[in-house]
């Protein structure tokens, strides 16, 4: 199985970007031969990660010159690697943890979804050292 770039796209960090982002991602994963179940799950995880960028990285009074995020999706062997890069103030990854599901309350489910679906989730430094980059990997069926 050869390695390939499935998608590279830049989106405005706005809620209205999520639907076209999901469509582009699902299309790229489908073309790469991912199963419908993998496509469905990966789209859920990536949507939540992008929501966090919009809501938290660019929220909270961020005075960022650029309010966009870049979505990179690569196929590496049987893995799909997804990188979401933003240009906001650096976040502390230690503060981004899934919450317990024992308590029924609105909010805080996104990080749980990401960790439940993806096989690897970590933050790395973007190439130019500015912003944040979330890297997620999923071993496809």
């Amino acid at each position: 199985m050869s390695d390939s770039i499935l998608l590279k796209a830049r989106f405005a960090a706005a809620p209205e970007s999520l639907k076209p982002m999901r469509a582009a991602l699902a299309s790229a994963l489908g073309r790469a031969g991912c199963t419908q179940e993998d496509v469905r799950d990966i789209v859920v995880a990536v949507n939540e990660a992008c929501m966090n960028v919009i809501q938290h990285a660019y929220g909270n009074g961020c005075r960022c010159a650029i309010r966009e995020f870049v979505l990179d999706v690569d196929k590496i062997g049987a893995d799909v690697e997804i990188r979401i890069t933003d240009f906001a103030d650096p976040v502390n990854p230690a503060h981004i943890k899934p919450r317990s599901l024992d308590e029924v309350r609105p909010g805080g489910l996104g990080v749980h979804f990401i960790h439940a679906i993806m096989d690897e989730v970590c933050f790395t430094a973007p190439d130019d050292g500015q912003g944040n980059r979330l890297v997620m990997k999923k071993r496809c069926q």
Binding site: R22, V44, L109
Partner: peptide, 11 residues
């Protein structure tokens, strides 16, 4: 499609 914000509205 429904995401965590939609689920939060239901909760």
């Amino acid at each position: 499609y429904i995401d965590s914000s939609g689920v939060a509205s239901l909760v």
